[in-house]
């Protein structure tokens, strides 16, 4: 059995009096797209930030390729790539310059930059300043930045949030192709059930800091007797 890319056990995160994540456990395999879905404030972003090593868990263990995200965060950061929900870019740089800066931070050559340019699909727009981009263009640039470094684990927080259909479909396709080509794992969060259904191999429903359901989209629909994941989502949340 392939080593799990991500192993989360009894993860708990408390901010002062607020329990954001309350003892969740899950795993992600190589070549898998794993979705974390849940209502606002469920703990999705907090979980992803812990995986991305920018927050420390209060309790529990998070291993990425067997490396602890707290004790070995420097090593973990070399094999992951994180795309936050409200990601920005240096607006006074061109798209190309931005990709180049990020590639250099990862110690990569111009090949990675070219790959990033290809993934973004922005073409000549990469020569313009990022400050002139539309929201969809910025998101595509950010996604390209996240994937061009060929991470073993891509952590994407609402990758198509706020995008129109065209851009959302593009993002979805890029994620699937990336996983197919590289065999890497992707863990993403989303409110878009259609996107989750099309993109994710397995899904975990999280509510109030706890995983309340987990499985493939088909398994979840069957378990909750729903025609789509949206129905599953509503049923699960209303039961809580």
């Amino acid at each position: 059995m392939a080593e799990a890319v991500v192993m989360v056990e009894n993860l708990r995160k408390v901010f002062r009096d607020v329990v954001a994540v309350d003892g969740i456990s899950f795993s992600v395999k190589p070549g898998e797209v794993f979705g974390l879905v849940g209502p606002n404030g469920a703990g999705k972003t907090t979980t992803l930030r812990i995986l991305a090593t920018i927050l420390k868990p209060t309790e529990g263990t998070v291993l990425i390729y067997g490396m602890d995200v707290v004790k070995e965060k420097d090593k973990v950061r070399r094999i992951i790539s994180y795309l936050p929900e409200e990601a920005g870019a240096y607006k006074n740089m061109t798209g190309y310059e931005y990709l180049k800066l990020m590639a250099r931070i990862y110690g990569l050559s111009d090949d990675a930059v070219r790959e990033g340019a290809r993934l973004s699909g922005l073409g000549d727009a990469l020569k313009r300043y990022v400050g002139t981009y539309s929201k969809g263009m910025k998101r595509r640039l950010q996604l390209a930045r996240a994937l061009m470094v060929k991470p073993k684990l891509a952590i994407l927080d609402e990758p198509s949030s706020g995008l129109d259909v065209v851009h959302a479909v593009y993002v979805r396709n890029v994620i699937r192709e990336f996983v197919k080509e590289t065999g890497a794992a992707v863990i993403l969060s989303s409110h878009n059930m259609l996107e989750v259904e099309y993109t994710c191999d397995r899904v975990a429903l999280i509510n109030k800091g706890r995983i309340v359901a987990e499985g493939t989209p088909r398994e979840l629909k069957e378990a909750f007797n729903a025609s789509n994941l949206e129905e599953v989502f509503v049923k699960v949340v209303s039961q809580q």
């Binding site: 930030r49 991305a52 090593t53 920018i54 420097d74 950061r77 070399r78 992951i80 790539s81 994180y82 795309l83 936050p84 409200e86 990601a87 920005g88 870019a89 240096y90 607006k91 990020m102 931070i105 990862y106 110690g107 930045r145 952590i155």
Partner: peptide
């Protein structure tokens, strides 16, 4: 404020 803090913190750059 420029939206790069999280990504920079999760990158290999120390």
């Amino acid at each position: 404020s420029s939206g790069v803090l999280k990504r920079v913190l999760s990158s290999p750059a120390t």
